[in-house]
Amino acid sequence: MPHVSGTEEDLMKRLRERFPKAFTELGIPRPRVVRGVIDRKDLVEVCFYLKEELGYEHLSCITAVDWKDHFESVYHLYSYTTGTTAQLNAIIPHDDPKIDSLVKLWNAAHYHEREAWDLMGVVYEGNPKLERILLPKDFQYHPLRKDFPQETERQYISRRKLKTGGR
């Protein structure tokens, strides 16, 4: 499939025209990629437009990121016809980690959202089965959050220790 030049600019223009206020940031970081930052309330509308009218039919990935002062839910949408990616970063406040679910548009969102909730604790409202998927059912925490303890210092083994076997 040859790369159609101008697809990214075209997509940017259409998104700007359709949602003049939704995007706080919109740009082309690399060829074949359009990156936009939106607020969580516009997510479903933008995704619906991308899927139904622009042919971004493949929901590739949902990532939740903890930025300490806010969360982000990152969506990678992919078009099988043009080979371009639309990346949407939806901003979520830290004290109210909720965002609308995309299961009505893509069934693939079921597992991605479950995983993101399981590991990061972002609640996807509307997902019918938001349960633990990778971690045990009785697990209490959301380990990918930055306040979840993690080894910060690497274990340092000195050369002498290695030579003498710890003595």
């Binding site: 493949h58 893509w106 069934n107 693939a108």
Partner: peptide, 9 residues
């Protein structure tokens, strides 16, 4: 259609 919608690749 199902395969695309469910993210089969």
């Amino acid at each position: 259609a199902d395969a695309i919608n469910w993210g089969v690749t």
